[in-house]
Design a protein around this nucleic acid. Structure first.
Lengths: 116, 116
DNA sequence: GCCGTACTACGATGCCTATCGTACGAGTCG
DNA sequence: CGACTCGTACGATAGGCATCGTAGTACGGC
């Protein structure tokens, strides 16, 4: 009818109003995931999973991206063989105004304080 | 010399600069602990452990307060038989300006949205 | 000194999760 | 078609952790 199943594979995301603060906090409390989110916030637009150079295996990377998606922090979509990732910044800002900004600022500040 | 060991029992707290954002996020990602912190932020001043009415046993309550203390979110001090708890709001604000405010606002907002 | 209150310590339990390796599915390009 | 790349699925493993119950310690008041 309307959308021609853009790229075939679909991924489950929580609706905006299903996102829980505790879930977001839990997702961000892992150093690897916080790192992913900071990188994603720094890059305007989307990044593929393989744009990240993480000190863990691919399996583990997949796991972290799924946790971030299921908690509502990022949106994932297939684009050919690549899987593109984007922060759900707008929705999070509607839900928790100022929170993501303060969090990212806090993470930056700590990174500077601890010497990147 | 100076301080006469105010009340005898001392509890280990991380110094301000030892507080890690990931640790704070992890501490706050538990519903019971987030609830404690919100209550503590609402009440001006300190509250004793037994001022909280939590749906868990005392053992578990002790555990949660310890996690909050060890992550640097609260400060605990013995006052007679009672153990008083206070948010380390000033120090957290120095470390992560605006973060605790945004977080507490987000928690309030979610509480309202989900009907307290 | 004795009792009650406030909180702790310790051990057990069951669940969650971060990590890995290997084997597989989906797309792209020759 | 065939090879290659990107990412998934699944099982295993080890460690973390929220919870409880019971037994114990510190303090204050009688």
């Amino acid at each position: 009818m309307s959308s021609p199943a853009v790229s075939s594979r679909d991924l489950p995301h929580p609706a905006r109003d299903e996102i829980r603060l505790e879930g977001v906090l839990h997702a961000l409390s892992d150093p690897m995931r916080l790192r992913i989110v900071r990188e994603l916030a720094g890059a305007r637009g989307e990044l593929s999973c393989s744009d990240f150079e993480l000190p863990v295996t691919k399996s583990t990377t997949t796991h972290h991206f799924r946790v971030l998606r299921e908690s509502g922090v990022i949106r994932q979509v297939y684009r050919g063989t690549a899987k593109m990732n984007g922060l759900r910044r707008d929705e999070l800002d509607e839900l928790f105004p100022g929170f993501m900004g303060a969090l990212l600022a806090a993470a930056d500040r700590q990174a500077v304080r601890l010497g990147d």
